[in-house]
């Protein structure tokens, strides 16, 4: 069973009083729980949040399932999101996605041995710098195949040295 940490409980309490209605705190709180739960939201997370916020669990589940930034399963340490919408597509976004998927072998559970997950995503608002990818919170733009691979390799290496 997932339990909300004391620190996160404080965060939730603050968010609940921040907006005009406590429901508005659901999205920020799901982001916070996702951080606490290795990057994804489990049913346990929702149940705990529902109890702590006193909001029906189905309301939280509706929000959780509606927004793409909440992950339904683990996305590893590095969630690589390659934009494949129109401008990126015209500049090789899909190709970049395929190259990265081949390079960093993703296992059956959706995560590679180096703890990477790779997703094809819709427009990230970086169309003038296509192709691009987002790794966790950061944008990497004007990519080439080699540049993208290098960025990811560097990230993996930096994790190991830390």
């Amino acid at each position: 069973m997932f339990t909300i940490s004391e620190k996160t409980k404080k965060f939730i309490t603050k968010e609940v009083s921040r907006y005009e209605t406590k429901r508005s705190a659901i999205i920020p709180c799901l982001f916070e729980l996702q951080k606490d739960n290795q990057g994804w939201i489990s049913n346990d997370c929702i149940e705990s949040l529902s109890q702590f916020m006193d909001i029906p669990s189905k309301d939280i589940n509706e929000v959780f399932h509606f927004y793409t930034m909440f992950n339904k399963k683990s996305v590893g340490d590095f969630h690589i999101q390659v934009c494949c919408n129109i401008s990126c597509h015209m500049n090789g976004g899909l190709d970049l996605f395929k190259v990265l998927s081949d390079e960093f072998k993703i296992e059956k559970n959706g995560v590679s041995k180096d703890s990477l997950a790779i997703s094809k995503v819709e427009c990230l608002g970086s169309c003038g710098t296509a192709p691009m990818m987002q790794v966790n919170e950061k944008y990497y733009e004007n990519l080439t195949k080699d540049k993208a691979i290098q960025v990811i390799k560097d990230l993996i290496a930096s994790k190991k040295t830390n």
Partner: peptide, 21 residues
Amino acid sequence: THELGIFNRGDKSEVGTFNGK
């Protein structure tokens, strides 16, 4: 009683209860 919701979006939207409730 708030048991039912519509989860997911677009044509994947599905009515249901949360977590087998």
